[in-house]
Nucleic acid binder design. Structure first.
Lengths: 340, 340
DNA sequence: TGGATTTGATAAAGCGGTTAAGTTCGGGCC
DNA sequence: GGCCCGAACTTAACCGCTTTATCAAATCCA
């Protein structure tokens, strides 16, 4: 038997298509008795609404888009993405809304995808990752007048909604901790400098130098790759006056850095403390296990997804949501510096 | 200005809606000159087809589904998923087809999702991962008469299409290599026993025992988690007669196992060789770097996606596609056993 | 009792495309 | 010149569901 349509149900129940639609969508216009009868028939025929037909009618796609312009291979590497995706999923699923994922090569393709998907009414809104300083995506999306939820922030000059975790506060915690252990020479192997959160973390570090009277504090931007993480680590560990602690902006780089330390005979944590700004299985699998700033990425994404659904329901809404601040989890990779 | 429709284009170009549709879809029925004029107008008005409208017309959703029933957190851990997702993406994108991803808690929910998405015409087909022995999904999907591409195989008793890599051959290569190095006591920390490929790998091992006259060969099934990988490793390394080599079915388990070895003072590769059946950044980041069976997961997934598109275009098709066999990449974690 | 409301349902018009079935018209053929 | 044919378009139905306008019957109120 072919897919049943509301026309089939209407015929079988002896009512009109309209009545069936009212009944199935729980809106007034049919008596309780008729509604029950229609629902029974629909259930019996195993009816499901046709997605496209419904979209065409009420102009809701029932889908939100997530477009990533990092190189495709990164997807498999950074545990972060998987967490975000499954979190969004969970948040959207409550509503029957689906997540559509696209991985593109460059920012231009990303922008084109926003335009196309919006024009095609393929999605009802977007989730944005990794906000940049002066992010060109923001004005473009504002112009498209499409619901958007940015994961990250706070964003000063935009009408877009965002959900952020307090990176600055977390970085404070990390630096305070290292300072308390007695570290005075700290290197920060940062992420991409155009990322807003990278900038924020770097700022905290600069400020911390004065506050804690540290001898040396440097932030070195990278592309997040394990290889750059390794190269930078090798470089700073080769200097005459080497740092006693390194903070990495991602677990992948932290693990790569740990490898370099081992390779160079630098003992962790005796000679060098390592702290990762990202937590994941990766950070726990190494030896020594990495001290890390941990957070509930999945929960964060789920919450953001729910907010996005609210915005889609009422596009006049602007949401500024703050999720919990990352928490420092001390493990085996940090200790007081040797001289202490 | 609101979204332009083909009716707007038709009016502006002074032709009928039908003519516009013909022109835009590159099908006969309009002269070259008219076609050009229509395309120019469409372009000028910045027209894009409405996704839902198109689907409703030609009954194609323009989307394929990937439903995973592993626990959500696994998504972020196994690099494999990211690779598969971006590979599928790439393969589908050529056609403008989107990938819809769903992460569910259990196999029941997975089956329900197949039924619902098919009934809602939400997708044109599905990609299946991790085929099981006597997989209940196969008959269910056959009954739904929906295009399916299974990543894995070969599958003996099904009409579904699949794309497989020769795991047996790869496992042969791994065992031959270890035997050639002089190992006689080999433990295989396997994946979930209900997975078809787990079974296949285990079979090869059993057979290899006789072929190479190995003293001991055991496969121990696990749930793929790092913790089980660690537990099993601890157990086998605690035995009176410990193995000189361990083959892990995933890189996550291999890394966890390596950790246990270090923790127990078992030197790798001097006292123990470690070989991972999965390759990824993870395997390369550790020290020593792990010898692994590597393959182009992304390419494999992309190829499978293309085949799925062919099946969607012609549902009578059944595809049996074989991708390249995983290749052994020797790194630092394997060596002849100490006694040699 | 009769007009005004309310209730429960129907019919029909979209939504934005695709497509089968016409309609015109110019040209080739006998 | 009449006939037929294919090319180039147009018309209109249709995909499955939503929604508005309409309507008949029941209910209410004075």
């Amino acid at each position: 038997m072919a897919r049943p349509t509301i026309a089939d149900i209407a015929e079988r129940a002896g009512v009109s298509k309209g009545a069936v639609s009212f009944a199935l969508n729980g809106r007034p216009g049919v008596s309780e008795e008729t509604r029950r009868r229609i629902l029974a028939v629909a259930d019996e025929m195993n009816w499901r609404p046709h997605r496209a037909a419904r979209s065409l009618g009420n102009s809701r796609a029932g889908t939100v888009g997530l477009i990533l312009s990092r190189p495709a291979r990164t997807l498999g590497l950074e545990p972060f993405f998987g967490q975000v995706v499954s979190g969004l999923q969970a948040g959207l699923a409550e509503d029957g809304t689906a997540l559509q994922l696209l991985v593109v090569e460059d920012p231009e393709a990303e922008m084109a995808a926003y335009r196309n998907w919006t024009a095609e009414k393929r999605v009802d809104g977007f989730v944005l990752l990794d906000p940049l300083i002066d992010d060109p995506r923001f004005p473009a999306l504002e112009a498209l007048e499409v619901p958007v939820m940015v994961l990250g922030g706070p964003l000063p000059d935009t009408s877009l909604s965002y959900s952020w975790a307090d990176d600055s506060e977390a970085m404070h915690e990390a630096v305070d901790y290292l300072a308390a252990l007695g570290h005075r020479h700290v290197v920060h192997v940062a992420g991409m400098p155009q990322f807003l959160h990278t900038r924020r973390r770097m700022d905290v570090l600069t400020e911390a130098k004065a506050r804690h009277e540290l001898a040396e504090v440097v932030s070195i931007p990278t592309d997040y790759s394990d290889s750059e993480g390794a190269v930078i680590t090798r470089r700073v560990l080769s200097r005459r006056e080497r740092p006693t602690a390194i903070v990495y902006d991602s677990d992948v780089m932290a693990v790569a850095g740990l490898g370099v330390a081992l390779e160079m005979g630098v003992r962790v944590p005796q000679d060098l403390s390592i702290l990762s700004f990202d937590d994941s299985l990766l950070a726990r699998l190494t030896h020594p296990a990495l001290t890390a700033l941990t957070r509930d990425t999945q929960g964060w994404a789920a919450e953001a997804a729910r907010e996005l659904l609210r915005i889609i329901a009422d596009p006049t809404l602007t949401v500024r949501h703050q999720s919990s601040t990352p928490v420092l989890v001390p493990r085996e990779s940090t200790a007081p510096p040797a001289g202490q």
